[in-house]
Design a protein around this nucleic acid. Sequence first.
DNA 1: ACCAGACTTCAACCTGACTTGAGCTAAGTT
DNA 2: AACTTAGCTCAAGTCAGGTTGAAGTCTGGT
Lengths: 153, 153
Amino acid sequence: MEWLTIGELADRSGVATSALRFYETKGLIASTRTDGNQRRYPRATLRRVALIRAGQEVGLSLAELANALATLPHDSTPTRADWERLSRSWRQRLDSQISELTALRDELADCIGCGCLSLRSCALFNPGDVASARGTGPRYLMGDKREEGRVKT
Amino acid sequence: MEWLTIGELADRSGVATSALRFYETKGLIASTRTDGNQRRYPRATLRRVALIRAGQEVGLSLAELANALATLPHDSTPTRADWERLSRSWRQRLDSQISELTALRDELADCIGCGCLSLRSCALFNPGDVASARGTGPRYLMGDKREEGRVKT
DNA sequence: ACCAGACTTCAACCTGACTTGAGCTAAGTT
DNA sequence: AACTTAGCTCAAGTCAGGTTGAAGTCTGGT
């Protein structure tokens, strides 16, 4: 098997060595060590790192990725089935992200039309769960007249 | 003018009081104080907060929002022109986010077809600047054979 | 044998967007 | 007057996803 040093992996994956070590602490990738305690990564790690970066683009957290990658072998090429499973679920993720954003955009288009001086009737300011798609924090958009206790996170 | 306490604003906007105070420190919203030093917000703040939350959904940072909102009056309804200006630029943002995600999804669809056992030919793992859309960090996805120094951020 | 450059660990720091807690004050209800 | 909520400030904490620096060790080439 061909082994890569952390520097080689960094150069070829475009990910900083510090990030690679960080990923390793999170169990996303694994290495063996030389006698002198240096990391050596199997070539397959290059793919793993690419998957991680791709997954991040799709909006997955490292924790979710660790989960997904836990089902793949660390030291060999993922099987076609592995890859299909991952890419299918990522695709679903993308699809739902896209439709949420599209909905938001269309609402915004209506708003441009309406002027929305009273935001009361504006779709943008009603809950619509675009919310959960991104980040943390209270996940409500709202208008004048909707009540409800504050959303604690 | 009708004034809201921070608690009322929180209940009606769905945003925690702590977040509202935080926004105030960032100049996103403003308040006057009672004799007893309590915040009182003009009703228009409700709209401002709604705009902030909507802007966040669109992927704007609080700093960017502070910037955009700096052009609106704190204590009265934004004019139609104000609102159009904002919503137009947010719409552009949405449009580009959507097209980036769509591109990523389509590449992924190809990948499902190809199996991508060698990720060499897979569109997902070539740069394609979906990258800059989200967050910080090295912004390269790459395959086996692309070289290049690491991307420092 | 020697040296440069790559590698090691560990702790500290960073940004963004808030939340939590301590200690204290104001407002409203009975 | 006594309570109970709600509000105040300020410092510190949290979480993600890393980066930076210090102090020391390995590896590969000559």
